[in-house]
Design a protein around this nucleic acid. Sequence first.
DNA 1: CAAATAATTTCATAATATTGCAGAAAATAG
DNA 2: CTATTTTCTGCAATATTATGAAATTATTTG
Lengths: 248, 248
Amino acid sequence: MLKEERLDYILKKLQADNKVLQTELSNDLQVSEDTVRRDLESLAQSGLLIKVRGGAIPHSPHPYSFKERIGIHEDDKRTIAGKALSFLHDGQTIIMDGGTSTYTLVKMFPANLRLTVITNSVPIAMQLMEHPSTEVILTGGRVFKSSQVTSGLDTIRMLEKVRADICFLGVCSLHPTAGITGIDLGEAEVKHSMIRSGSRVMALATIDKMGTAEPFKVCDITELDTIITDRVNEEVMQPYLNLGIKVI
Amino acid sequence: MLKEERLDYILKKLQADNKVLQTELSNDLQVSEDTVRRDLESLAQSGLLIKVRGGAIPHSPHPYSFKERIGIHEDDKRTIAGKALSFLHDGQTIIMDGGTSTYTLVKMFPANLRLTVITNSVPIAMQLMEHPSTEVILTGGRVFKSSQVTSGLDTIRMLEKVRADICFLGVCSLHPTAGITGIDLGEAEVKHSMIRSGSRVMALATIDKMGTAEPFKVCDITELDTIITDRVNEEVMQPYLNLGIKVI
DNA sequence: CAAATAATTTCATAATATTGCAGAAAATAG
DNA sequence: CTATTTTCTGCAATATTATGAAATTATTTG
């Protein structure tokens, strides 16, 4: 096995798990821990990861607010992302909102999928740079460190010029009467602008977000076409179904 | 068997397996490992693969990607970044071009430095998200995968609205008469726009970039205020000094 | 066609790089 | 503080690369 294959494996694993352990890698790759350590050393030297005692963690991707959230409900998010994937087809133009659910979705894009993705999320843009066949358009503006998305007038202006097949919305809170709501006014405005630019609007939300609300309104619930969630609970979802929204 | 047949075989195998081993090829092709090595050498020379110890791997889909460049000349880049740091002060607004030199600079920002950074580089924005006291504004537009920057009309429009104290330019090629040049028209236009929006323009360039030129012109050399380089070589730098440009 | 020339390939050998291991040093957890 | 784990250091075993000379194969030219 070539050294470069090992390095590649390490980076891939790091990407997938958000951490790597020397003992694990030594096993996976069938080389001594010394070699793994030297590999991690060289990757750290190139700035591709950060070496820590016992293994390594990714370099930039997620500062703590984002990082903290990214691990939780990981399985649920993968379930949601898996369902969302079935709506994607070659040639489509997609709007991707920020958030950990959409980020998980993007990580699961098959290598041969050919899309144009418009996003305001820096980590999503970063992730898609690795993807061989996706066109990425990043909306400009001030970057919010907590959510890692751009927002502001420039962001909205760019979104206004777009006509996308699907808008995937990462959702904080979702309530049958309060609609979709968020914790920041600027981000709420941007989300609304995304909704206006998408032919179909699909919200990605774990079931614990249902029936909750935050201070700033994004849109009425009826502006959604579909809610994609991890577990479809009849009772919880009935109000949305009654409003003619598909639930998957 | 003709040499071309071997080269063809090697490329096909590389395509199929994502790697080739010298020992294997030597067997398959019934030639010595020396010959295989020379074959790989010549293929690497034409940029069709990357030669590594023991064999070869394909190079990433995007020619000379950010990742591939990030490790090289790391020390020189740190030297340059160190010099550039001395020009930064709290409260300034800075334009940061893409490129590995500017990326290194951003990585070295002291934690207490309070800046507003306008950039078209996704990795720089990502990096600054970890920085506690920097305001980041990302210019929107289509993302170029090889250089990981946005470009296009939207990018330029956003830059036009900016008045920055310093513009740090990552430079491909720099020549006393040809000026600053780059390998992509779109990126060249964006760089020029950055220059117009910066009160002072500082180019970050390792000494090996001096006296070289690429197809697309960014600006005349006289539009620069300062060139920051790793080693100041009197002879190489004299033409620039004669034009009244500071060299550090 | 054959001799001369050039290019390519092989082989032997020296230089270099990678890897794994043992033991000391350092960091971490209890 | 002690026990455990991880890291660092130097070193030996192995694999790979570089080099130069000889052998082989192609190409040119009269």
